[in-house]
C-alpha cells in the first residue's frame, strides 16, 4: 500500500488535534463547552468512564444489527430483482422506509421489543437494511444488460443465472452497501441507547451530557467513531480479499 495514504491522514489528524489543544488553552474555552483533546484522552482512560463495559454492549448490538439488517436487505434486494410483482408491491415502501427518522422509530421499537438488547439491535438493523437492499437490487438488475441474453442462449435456469452471473456481478454493489452499513450499524445502536437503557455508548453520552461532563461525552463520541471506522475497515478487508480471489 502507498505509505502516503496512511501518513497524510495521520499528519492531518495530528495537526488538527494540536491546533485544537493550543486554541482552547490560549482562548481559555470553558471545559464544558469544548474540552481540549488532552482532557478527552484523560476521560477515555478514566475508570469512571467504564469504556470497556459500554463499548462491548454497543459492539454486540451493532454487530447483531449489521448482520441481521444486511441479511434482510440482501434477501429483499434479491426478491425485488427477481420478481416484477414484488417490485410493484414493495419498492415504493422500501424507498419510503429510508425517509423514516431513526430518532422517531427508536421509541416505537423500544415499546414493541422492550428495553433490552433486542430493541437496540432491531433499530440498528432497521438502519442497515436499506443501503444493502437498494445496492444489491441495482447490482442484480444491472447484470441483465450484460449477461441476460448470453445465459438465455444456453438455456440457463433462474438459479444458474442468479448464482453464476447476477450475484457475482452485484458483489461490488453489495460491498458498497455493506461499507455504508458498517457505520450505520453503530449509529443505529447508539441512537437506540439514548432511550431507556442503563448501558452502552449512547447511554454514556446522554448521562455525560446531563452532568455537563463534556470530556466524557467526547470520549464516548470518539470511541463510537472509532467503532464505525473499524467496522468499515473489516468490510473493506473482506472486499479486498474477495477481489483478490476473483479478479
Amino acid at each position: 500500500m502507498n505509505k502516503k495514504k496512511i501518513i497524510v491522514p495521520i499528519a492531518v489528524l495530528l495537526a488538527v488535534l494540536a491546533t485544537w489543544e493550543i486554541a482552547t488553552r490560549l482562548a481559555n474555552v470553558p471545559i464544558y463547552v469544548l474540552p481540549a483533546p488532552s482532557y478527552v484522552a484523560q476521560a477515555i482512560f478514566d475508570p469512571r468512564t467504564q469504556l470497556l463495559k459500554h463499548t462491548s454492549i454497543t459492539v454486540g448490538e451493532s454487530v447483531c444489527g449489521l448482520l441481521i439488517g444486511s441479511l434482510v436487505g440482501l434477501c429483499l434486494g434479491m426478491i425485488l430483482a427477481e420478481s416484477k410483482s414484488a417490485r410493484l408491491a414493495f419498492l415504493p415502501y422500501v424507498i419510503g422506509s429510508n425517509a423514516v427518522p431513526v430518532v422517531a422509530i427508536a421509541p416505537l421499537v423500544v415499546m414493541w421489543f422492550g428495553y433490552g438488547f433486542l430493541s437496540r439491535a432491531v433499530v440498528s438493523a432497521f438502519l442497515c437494511f436499506f443501503p444493502l437492499c437498494i445496492n444489491a437490487y441495482r447490482g442484480l438488475q444491472e447484470a441483465d444488460t450484460h449477461f441476460r441474453e448470453l445465459f438465455d442462449v444456453y438455456g440457463a435456469t433462474r438459479s444458474q443465472y442468479l448464482l453464476k452471473a447476477r450475484l457475482p456481478y452485484a458483489m461490488p454493489f453489495i460491498f458498497a452497501g455493506a461499507k455504508l452499513n458498517a457505520t450505520y450499524a453503530v449509529i443505529g445502536a447508539v441512537v437506540a441507547e439514548f432511550i431507556g437503557t442503563t448501558a452502552g455508548l449512547g447511554y454514556g453520552m446522554v448521562h455525560a451530557s446531563y452532568n455537563l461532563d463534556t470530556p466524557r461525552l467526547w470520549a464516548y463520541l470518539v470511541v463510537s467513531i472509532t467503532l464505525g471506522i473499524s467496522f468499515y475497515g473489516i468490510v473493506w478487508f473482506l472486499e479486498f480479499w474477495y477481489r483478490r480471489r476473483h479478479e
Binding site: 444456453y154 438455456g155 444458474q160 457475482p168 479478479e247
Partner: peptide, 17 residues
C-alpha cells in the same frame, strides 16, 4: 465475466442448462 478466468469464461456454456 470479470470474475472468471479465460478458461472458465470459455467453459461457461457447459455449466449451464
Amino acid at each position: 465475466m470479470d470474475w472468471r478466468t479465460v478458461a472458465d469464461n470459455i467453459a461457461l456454456p457447459s455449466e449451464l442448462g
